[in-house]
Simulated assay, not measured.
Amino acid sequence: MWRFKAPKEEENTTEFFIQNGAYLLEELIISCNGKSNPIRNFSIKELLKATNNYHRDHILRTTEEFTLFKGRHEDQFITVKKFKGNDRRFTERCVNEVVMLSQINHKNVLKLLGCCLDTEVPILVYEYAANGDLFEKIIEKVGLGNHSVMSWESRLRIATGIANAVSYIHTATSKPIIHRDIKSGNILLDQNYVPKLSDFSFSISIPLGETHVEDAVRGTIGFIAPEYIASGRLTEKADVFSFGMLLLELLTGKTPWSLARLAESLNILFLDYFRSFIDNNRLREIVDSSIWEEEEEIKRQLQTFAELIVTCTEETPTERPTMMEVTKKLRQIERCLHP
C-alpha cells in the first residue's frame, strides 16, 4: 500500500501541497494501483537549510531546465533537483518521476528519497552521488583526480551495472518501464563509482496486456530510436537503441553528435560510419586512445563490445537484443577480463 509521509511540524497544508499531493496520488493509483515505496515530503525550510538557501557553492550541475544541488540533511548528503520557473510541464515531469521511482528498488538506479510538494513545481530529493555524472568523466574528462582517464575495466563495469538496471525496469516492475533518455549525462557515480541510472522524468510504462505504447517523441537527439522518431511507437527496444549509443560513448569517448558530424563530412550515414571501422579491422582508430591496449585479450573484448553496439543499434527493432541478452553478453566480456 502506498504511504505518503509528511513532516509532523507541517500541520497547515498549503494550496500547492494539496494540489500537488492530489495529482501525485491520482497518478500513483493509475500507474501502480497505489502500491509504491514510501515517499517522504520534505518541507521548504528543510531544503533551504540543507542547501544553504540554494547557495551557488552547492551547485552540482545546471541545465536549461533544472539545477542539481548538494545538500546535507540529518547527517547524510543528499541531491536536490530544483526546476527553473513554474512551467506546468515541469510539475508533470516531477510527478512522473516520483511515480516511476516509487516502483523501483535497484542498486544501479538513483534512489528517490522524497520530494517537496509545498512549491508550485515540486522539488525532488535523491541519494547523493559523490562522483558526478559519466559524461564528465568520459567525454569532458574532468574530476578524475590523479586518474587522467577512466579505465576500460571501469567503463565495462559501469556498462554492466546500467544494463542490469535497464533490464530490471523492463522486466521486474508491474508494468514494463521505458526510460526514454539513457545517456552518459544521466548516469551518476557514487563514492565507489557505482553507476546510478537517473532522470526518469520522461519514462513511460507499457500498459498491461500491450506490447507497446504510443506517445510524443521525448529524449535526447542522437539517442532516440529511429522507429520511435518515425511513428511515436515505443517498445523496450527503444531503450536498447539508446543503451547502444551509451556504449558508443563509453567505447569512443565521443558523443553520437560529434561522430555524426564526422560521418556527415564523409557523406555517409552515422552508424554505417561506425560499422566501417569494425568491418575493415580499423577499430583502433575509433576506440578512445586512452583505453586501447595491444594485448590480444583486451582487443578481443573491445571488438566484442563494438559488435554489441552494432546489434543494439540495428535499424529494425526486432533485430536488437533484449536488455537481458545485452546484460548477459557484457557479463561474458567481464569474465574474460577477470577469468
Score class of each variant (00 low, 15 high):
Glu297Asp: 11
Gly143Met: 03
Val217Met: 01
Ala50Ile: 15
Ile138Glu: 10
Gly71Arg: 11
Glu295Ala: 14
Pro321Glu: 05
Gly132Gln: 03
Glu285Gln: 13
His73Pro: 03
Leu25Ala: 13
Asp75Ala: 05
Gln76His: 07
Asn96His: 05
Leu189Ile: 12
Thr173Ile: 09
Cys115Asn: 03
Ile39Asp: 02
Asn108Asp: 08
Ala230Cys: 12
Glu97Ile: 08
Val287Lys: 07
Phe42Ala: 04
Asn186Pro: 01
His106Thr: 13
Lys49Pro: 05
His55Tyr: 13
Ser102Lys: 05
Lys141Tyr: 05
Arg282Asn: 08
Arg61Lys: 07
Gly114Lys: 01
Ala130Tyr: 01
Ser167Gly: 10
Ala159Tyr: 13
Arg331Ser: 07
Arg89Asn: 07
Ile309Glu: 12
Met150His: 10
Glu307Arg: 15
Pro226Ala: 12
Val99Met: 15
Ala130Leu: 05
Ser154Arg: 12
Asn192Met: 13
Phe274Met: 11
Lys8Asn: 07
Ser31Gln: 06
Glu307Thr: 07
Ser203Tyr: 01
Leu189Gly: 03
Phe17Val: 09
Val194Thr: 15
Lys45Trp: 14
Gln76Tyr: 08
Thr119Cys: 09
Arg88His: 02
Leu250Asn: 03
Leu101Ile: 01
Ser231Ile: 15
Ile333Phe: 06
Glu92Thr: 07
Ile268Val: 15
Asn33Val: 06
Glu214Pro: 03
Phe200Thr: 02
Glu295Leu: 11
Phe66Pro: 00
Asn20Trp: 10
Asp215Ala: 15
Val125Ser: 00
Phe66Val: 02
Asn53Lys: 08
Ile139Tyr: 04
Asn105His: 04
Ile229Ala: 09
Val121Ser: 04
Val217Asn: 03
Arg275Cys: 12
Glu11Asp: 03
Ala230Gln: 14
Thr316Asn: 06
Met324Lys: 12
His179Ala: 06
Ile162His: 06
Cys116Asp: 00
